[in-house]
Design a protein around this nucleic acid. Sequence first.
DNA 1: CTGAAAGCGCTTACAG
DNA 2: CTGAAAGCGCTTACAG
Lengths: 342, 342
Amino acid sequence: MKKTSLNDIAKQVGVSKTLVSFVLNGRAKEFRISEDVCQKVMDTAKELNYQPNRIARGLRTGKTNTIGLIIADIANPFFGKLGREIEQEAARQGYRVIFCSSNENQEKSEEQIAMLQQSQVDGFIISPPVNSEEQIQTLAQGSTPFVLIDRYFPQIPCSYIVVDNFDAAYRATNHLLSRGRKKIANITLNLGLVNMQERTDGYKQALRDASINVDETMIKVLPFSNGEQDMYQAIKELVGTEEKPKIDAILFSTSKIGIMAIECISNMELRIPDDIAIVSFDNPDAYKICTSPVTVISQPLEEIGKTAVQILLDKIRQPETANELQQITLKTDLIIRKSCGS
Amino acid sequence: MKKTSLNDIAKQVGVSKTLVSFVLNGRAKEFRISEDVCQKVMDTAKELNYQPNRIARGLRTGKTNTIGLIIADIANPFFGKLGREIEQEAARQGYRVIFCSSNENQEKSEEQIAMLQQSQVDGFIISPPVNSEEQIQTLAQGSTPFVLIDRYFPQIPCSYIVVDNFDAAYRATNHLLSRGRKKIANITLNLGLVNMQERTDGYKQALRDASINVDETMIKVLPFSNGEQDMYQAIKELVGTEEKPKIDAILFSTSKIGIMAIECISNMELRIPDDIAIVSFDNPDAYKICTSPVTVISQPLEEIGKTAVQILLDKIRQPETANELQQITLKTDLIIRKSCGS
DNA sequence: CTGAAAGCGCTTACAG
DNA sequence: CTGAAAGCGCTTACAG
């Protein structure tokens, strides 16, 4: 069962494949092809179940109508949902997306970029892992358009769409302060990522604006490959002794960290929010059903996804504007639940 | 900045592109190409940052080294993790994967299959949505190999890899019985999916084997597009009046349902496990941190993913065996936490 | 050992 | 209105 090609249709109808191509691409009118022939071609195409070979078309036209998407971790629902939005919007615009998950690994991301380039994708959407500046720099020098999501590199001029992490952390910290918490800690990930750095900066600024000294020992930076041990260790150090607890609140910079921490906290028999109030970035299901539903900073995933696709497609479709920088920062929502008391 | 092609290298070195192709594909030895030329070609390729055009290669060889993956919902961590396993294993074997999320929508899945076929993928891995029998049947008649995951259609002979859902539900129900629960309900999704049907069947069989009558009103089947309203309704009907509660346990057939239900249950001020014991399929993070961590049926995601890729690649690489049916059923793990009491 | 040539399936100037 | 031909970038029989 060989696949049917333009030629098969052409032969069966008794016309040239040029003509078949015109008809099937809806350019029959343009070339004033007779109704009769037109109909016959379409019928035959249907009859033979013709599926155009897109890679042949891609080779010829130089366009594959495909976007390469590299996200940091597909198993993380945040990126999963974002990926879904991107795929949907792309599909709506006639584009396919090749998904890759770099698993926050710089080498993997590099391989994936090369692979996608070899696949002749028309553009990229990337959430770059730590230490991938160089790859992104190289990409910026090439001619394939791309847009970064979730993170960016301040020193590399390129298009991106992110949220205002500083503002989000600032407001979250303020919320904790407004609930009477004074000894607020921050647990975060590798600060090599701007978004993580901005979150911690916003946290610090809120403290300063409330005339509270920033105590660097209250900021715990976990490695990406953190395990439960690291988390227990961090929390123990933060909490201190039972009689004289050092902290009364924690801001978590990611939900992966937050979820693990809640597990530790509950195993340590500390109560949320009585002993420790918490706020976390991201809005996973888990936070809705835990003992004390977690107050979160929620990102507008749909808007991020749609905008990223829109920006990229603009660049792809109008190469003359491809070099215009689109740098978009969206606001987040603070969703108040029970984890900060009242 | 046009991309460099084989021809560019050939010209610069002063040889034919045939030779360049041989060298770059590691067939220099085979054709006894002189060390000298070989070295020059490789140096030039590096110098010009040559990236082979895979779609041209694909057009010529008829192989794209690409797998099409259609999962039911990428925003669901179950499928996200499964997708990651598949992508990793495929990458290890030199294959790329094009991800699609059908969102449990039959029409979308059909479009995606067509799109992937047009992209000349070498094979498919699919978790088919309800009512997609026909598409899968059509696929089975074609020549592109594929393997189903998570679900299958008993009446269509094709390769698949799933878990023993009957056994899993049977054991889960037995566990509830062993904890003294007698009035066990089941909340599930559209039974058009075999895996859902098997779960409910296993549940029923366990009750029967314990000499408990199966009460069909204790089985609530939600539509896919269920909302909180449907869930509240279902739980209210199951629970009955406060003085004389109709049930003392629930088996959830998916975690999406379970998570929503836990939210409802806690809003209704019912206690887990005191008032209602629960067991759920799938093992999302959420279940680890809720008030009463949930006993779950956990699926061997890594094994499912790896095996699916392995089976598919075998078919792709050895077309003569492509028609051999590989139907694999894996066992699940029952992870006991606190939601069933003791 | 190396090169000229064909061909994968398409699109698109060009000619009539 | 329609067709023959070139060419996208590769691989691979074939010839020498």
